[in-house]
């Protein structure tokens, strides 16, 4: 019946490929589509959080810190619930990391606070004796690049349909809307408004003064991002 196919190696190869590919489609796609959907309670990043994420990437935090908690008792005890793929729906790129020189940061927002991060980034040795993490003092001086964060927001909203300005379902049944500004000017104002909330819990006078006059030091954005990791 299929002798004609057996005599045509090219079409035979195509047929084999089609058969295997179809099996793959049936088995992989539905499961993947389901699990990569944003989890209920997963929200897109706000302007300042996204800017903080850029600071995180710029300083290669992911070289030492993972953001992926495996389903082992020893890990969930230390870092919180194990990670699910839907939680990374708005991570572009994801920052799983491949090596833990420092601890996992997937849910660091649950158990560290603004003032702790401030102390720790200024002088890690003070709060964690013997740590090999270096101080990141330039973050207290350098300004955050809000413009690039806003550009990313527009891009992901336009091309990947990230639900900015739309209600996102939360775990308790309510909804939450993450705002994306209409103009760059407004985005800068939004980021500054977020920064003012963070800075209320900070003690570094230079940082407080900077936000007071409308600058956002990188540390503020980074802390906003850290606090959003839950």
């Amino acid at each position: 019946m299929f002798h004609w196919l057996e005599k045509n190696p090219f079409f035979f190869a195509l047929a084999v490929f089609a058969t295997i590919a179809f099996a793959g489609l049936v088995e992989i796609i539905p499961n993947f589509a389901q699990s990569s959907r944003p989890l209920i309670g997963t929200t897109p990043y706000s302007t300042l959080e996204l800017a903080g994420r850029h600071v995180y990437i710029k300083n290669s935090c992911n070289a030492c810190h993972s953001q992926l908690i495996r389903p082992f008792k020893s890990e969930t005890d230390r870092y919180g619930d194990y990670s699910l793929s839907g939680e990374y729906a708005y991570d572009r790129p994801f920052l799983w990391g491949s090596k833990r020189t420092g601890p996992d940061l997937m849910r660091v927002g649950n158990y560290r606070t603004t003032d702790w991060h401030e102390n720790h980034m200024w002088d890690p040795e003070k709060v964690v004796p013997g740590t090999i993490m270096p101080a990141y003092r330039w973050m207290f001086v350098n300004n955050t690049d809000v413009d690039t964060a806003y550009a990313e927001m527009i891009t992901v909203e336009k091309f990947f349909g990230v639900p900015y300005n739309k209600p996102v379902p939360m775990k308790d049944g309510s909804t939450k809307t993450i705002k994306m500004a209409d103009t760059l000017h407004q985005a800068r104002k939004d980021a500054l408004a977020e920064a003012r909330i963070i800075v209320k819990d900070m003690k570094h006078q230079d940082v407080i003064d900077a936000v007071e006059v409308g600058r956002i030091p990188e540390i503020v954005a980074l802390i906003a991002y850290m606090n959003s990791l839950k």
Partner: peptide, 10 residues
């Protein structure tokens, strides 16, 4: 006055 302490529900 010192800062915020998170809950430790784990």
């Amino acid at each position: 006055v010192i800062g915020t302490m998170p809950a430790f529900n784990r």
